[in-house]
Amino acid sequence: MKRPAGRDDPKRELWLAWYAILVFYNLYTVVFFILTRTQPPGKPWYGAGDASGWFAHHHDGLLVGFALIFVLGGLSATSIALITYSIRRMSVSRAFAYSYLILYSVSAVPGFLFICVAMTAGAMRPDRDPALQQWLYDLGFLSFSGTMGVFLVGSLIWMAAILLDKNRVFPKWFGYLNLCNALTEVVVAPSWMFDRGVFAWNGLIAWWINVVVFGLYTGVFINLLRNVIIREDFGTGPLPGLPKRARGHAPAEVVS
């Protein structure tokens, strides 16, 4: 395996981003599954009293876990950036890359900041009126599961780019795995309507199958991104200097 991010490694930026992705997804897993225990999610059918009790029971984990996301959540940009870069290496229009970049960047606030804010607000005041605690509980879980469109369209954009690409940056089968990820965003829609059963936010389809698909998809694309970096051929020499730097253009960049 190529050693990452040495001082003169021409791929150091790529390896730094790739390792940041590893850190981010591991942090994400630890925070959501272990610290806050918000995955698997709480029961959607909880009444106000149960939701209030849930906050009291998860108090410390919620506050510490989501504080970690408040501090380190921005690392998610590395994953978006590396994937955007991978699309720029494809034979398709830059529009695909920029669409992916913007779609996933705007997903950050509804997709993970809302659950952090709502759960922190709930945990900060366990003695709040239970009806309001239930309101925060719903806001947390539904904003997290129910921010769908950006990931749906984002995955389709990435899929289309991979299937059209002549440079074979990603294998075609991964294009179709993007479709599977996009479908998880389709089948999660009923969680806005049902508070129990397979389609509820903790149900067999809307949670268990989705989390398996998403976990598999994420593991696969992290590995494929690693392959993309290994295959990049920048040569091994030092960076050429930038003596004739004209405004708005850096000649040393392979993709600018």
Binding site: L14, I80, A81, T84, Y85, L101, F234, L242, V254
Partner: peptide
Amino acid sequence: GMAHRTPIMRYCMIG
């Protein structure tokens, strides 16, 4: 204008 080989750090900033 930075001596980078890829635009990846800029994409991180834009994100």
